[in-house]
């Protein structure tokens, strides 16, 4: 992949870069404050929280989860577009286990997660050991994985009844949807692992300059391996939530298109596709922007299909803004105008 690293002085990373995504989120919320009645209304029904905002958080769960994994993959200058298929596989396994074997909850949860991590490890192996470009490595799994998911469910939509498992998608813990708890947990653990241990530093270092990282004694290969496994894990969790949500597994559609949403979330969050410094909080905000954008579009009665076009345009805009060449050409134009 071609990476252009120029040595222009750019303001320090960190909080500054979060301002733009935060403002974007604020703009969308502000729009809704004026144009969508009851948008900020939160009520307690049966000691459970309900309302548009809670709904956004709840629905954003899969995207947030995947974008957490994707953030780390992108930070190593990689990409994982197989996450949608891994979601389908994870859901398919869970649904089949419940519907066909009646396995205990522990098995129903751990087996899909383990398989998802193995799939991630497979991507990581292709990328770090064989040297296949990340996009191609994960493309193989993206398509073959969809087939595997259909194989597991025999092409059918497998439905099930299992109160304990459904809790993952529809339950409430202390009045808050359980999915939000899961997000908070995964986010918190990831944030801790990358910021309180040296893992984050190593990931950034590998993404920014693999040669120098190797010379400094970092095992570039293991780091890459780990982030793909983690991305697989996140997709696996998202797959469980998706399955629990609809009480079934739809191998054709589960997770479809989520890979771009996740990439978009990561990029909107101020993370560079060239790898290096990353911000999980940024990706979280990015994912919220996407979901609130989608919800807003939907509540305005615009067909859901439009969101894809809008998202695609947003990606173009955002990564043009990230492009050094583009910024320079804009700057040059301004300079020419001002005498």
């Amino acid at each position: 992949m071609s990476i252009n690293k120029t040595n222009h002085t750019i303001n320090n990373h960190g909080f500054v870069t979060l301002i733009w995504p935060l403002m974007g989120l604020a703009a969308i919320l502000l729009f809704n404050l004026f144009f969508t009645p009851n948008f900020f209304h939160i009520e307690i029904k049966d000691s459970h929280l309900y309302g548009s905002l809670i709904d956004i958080l709840n629905r954003a769960a899969p995207v947030i989860l995947i974008s957490i994994g994707m953030t780390l993959v992108i930070a190593t200058a990689g990409i994982d577009i197989s996450v949608g298929s891994v979601i389908a596989i994870s859901g398919a396994i869970a649904a089949s286990l419940i519907a066909k074997t009646g396995a205990p909850l522990l098995v129903v949860v751990t087996v899909p997660l383990l398989i998802s991590m193995i799939l991630g490890a497979w991507n990581g192996f292709l990328v770090s050991a064989i040297g296949v470009q990340p996009i191609i490595a994960s493309l193989i799994l993206m398509v073959a994985g969809r087939g595997i998911a259909q194989l597991i469910t025999d092409g059918q939509i497998v439905t099930f009844e299992n109160k304990a498992f459904e809790y993952i998608g529809n339950g409430f813990l202390f009045g808050i949807p359980f999915t939000i708890t899961i997000i908070a947990l995964v986010f918190g653990v990831t944030q801790t692992l990358t910021r309180k241990t040296a893992l984050g530093l190593f990931i950034e270092s590998v993404g920014c300059n693999p040669t120098a990282s190797r010379f400094s004694g970092i095992s570039v290969r293991s780091i890459k391996q780990v982030v793909y496994i983690f991305s697989g894990f996140c997709a696996g969790v998202a797959g469980l939530i998706a399955a629990a949500n609809i009480k079934g597994a739809d191998s054709n559609n589960a997770g479809d298109g989520l890979e771009l949403d996740a990439i978009l979330a990561v990029v909107i969050g101020g993370n560079s596709l060239d790898g290096g410094k990353f911000s999980l909080t940024g990706s979280l905000i990015g994912a919220l922007i996407i979901q609130s954008l989608t919800t807003t579009i939907l509540t305005r009665g615009v067909p859901v299909e439009v969101t894809r076009v809008v998202k695609a345009l947003v990606v173009v805009a955002v990564f043009l803004a990230q492009s050094e060449t583009f910024r320079n050409s804009i700057r040059a134009k301004f300079r020419r105008r001002t005498p």
């Binding site: 992949m1 071609s2 252009n4 990409i79 577009i81 996009i135 298109g257 771009l260 990439i263 596709l273 299909e305 439009v306 969101t307 894809r308 076009v309 809008v310 998202k311 695609a312 345009l313 990606v315 173009v316 990564f319 492009s323 050094e324 060449t325």
Partner: peptide
């Protein structure tokens, strides 16, 4: 100087939309 995969991935969603 954008990576082809990300541009065409965007194109993929744009066209589908």
């Amino acid at each position: 100087k954008s990576a082809p995969f990300i541009v065409t991935l965007t194109g993929m969603f744009f066209c589908r939309g």
